[in-house]
Amino acid sequence: MLGPRIEGERGIALITPTLDHLKRNVEWMTRPETTRFWGVRAMDLRPEHAEKRFGENATDPTLVNWTIAFEGEQVGMTGLFHIDWITRDAESGIFIGRHDLYGKGIASEAIRLRTRFAWDELRLRRIHNWIAMRNRGSRRANEKAGYRQMGRFPRSWYRSGQWHDEWLGEILNPDWV
């Protein structure tokens, strides 16, 4: 499913994704600056694959996708994935493609908006995620929204000649009854 527009603070908003947004995200994902903490930058880069994936994202009832906009421009994407509508649990993810904008609090605000939507509109009960231990910025952004560490996965992935651990986080809906 594609998420609705949600206005945030400081010029940040979650907006409904388009096919062009997805194509730009994929192009950003080929760059080492934006994928240092995940990904080998080898993927199906054909335009027709992007179209297929966009169609699947738009119709898949187990995910909600947004484009992140800053001052009216696309800067990345975020979403809730693998939603289990029975246990009301989901996995979250975020990607900022504009690495020149790192450190401006865009991810923090996007996570805050996404989490509020998960509680107030989707009535989810729990969200969990995996973040590279070394990705301090992403961990901090999630912790600011209320995520807490529930575990650590050692030697999860290999990059730049080293093994890297992964941080496992979770957040529970404080108003769940």
Binding site: T87, D89, R126, M150, E170
Partner: peptide
């Protein structure tokens, strides 16, 4: 066990934590 998720599963009238093992 490398992770313990809070109240991940529900059954038989109560929530149960989820363990991830390696």
């Amino acid at each position: 066990t490398y992770a313990r998720g809070t109240a991940v599963h529900y059954g038989d009238g109560r929530y149960v934590d989820g363990l991830q093992l390696r």
